[in-house]
Amino acid sequence: MSHCIEMKQISKDYDRFQLHQVNLGIQEGYITGLIGPNGAGKTTLIRMMMGMVHPDKGEVKLFGEEDQLKLSRNKARIGYVSDENIYYEQLTVKQMKKVLAPFYDRWDEDTYQKYEAQFKLPPGKKIKDLSKGMKIKFSLAVALSHGADLLIMDEPTSGLDPVFRRELLDLLSEHIQDERKTILFSTHNTTDLDRIADYIVFINDGRIIFHEMKEALAEQYVLVKGGKELLDRDVRRMFVGVRENAHGFEGLAKERSDVERFFQDNAICETPTLEEIMYFTVKGSAVHV
């Protein structure tokens, strides 16, 4: 299996935020979801992949290349959907398309027209007058129209209504029918990923907490619900994060089989959702600091 994005020992210092020696390889042919709370470093990582932000240390490879010249050429193979509008707001949709199309050798006008119609993009409207969802649809149409092998999307579903969110998931599945195509998208809305993601990268506070197959997560993690009397200090240590209320506790633990054997019938053991894994991990790390 080959990686189409590789990041090695990436570090970056900001005033109030650091990326610590991030290592990451994105599998070709699959959908990888990048999750984490706001401010965890998702956007910084994505901008590094796009060559917008330079790491202080470490290297970024795209399609196995790290040479600057080839890297920049390789951007033609990337469809990028930014978390904020990067297009010229005073231009109309049509003008903007005309501005950017000639930079891509594999630009396919028919495909673009198809998506323009499907997304109901108004060609004569100025970018600044488009709704947030429409702006995302436009950049999605662009990303899908130049034969990109890799889609990198930063929070593409925020600002989209639930109906189009579902449509987007369909589009992504359609894209991935060709097994040489790869998708990486970041989101804090994990329900999008619960369904279609193959791999999950979870980043919190500038560190990668895990990079796993989504299938494997369900077998690893367990959500335990039980009475408070079960929670002594040793038991607490088993959990990644715990939430207590008047009637009992909920805790996320990692070694599923061990934990299930330990609690047996004294507590309820469930498969956690991605959101629960994210919530308890962030909560747990906040306590330990």
Partner: peptide, 15 residues
Amino acid sequence: QQNNQRFLVSLPLQR
């Protein structure tokens, strides 16, 4: 004016 330099950098060009 907006984040248009990001658009330019996202193109398959060298800086």
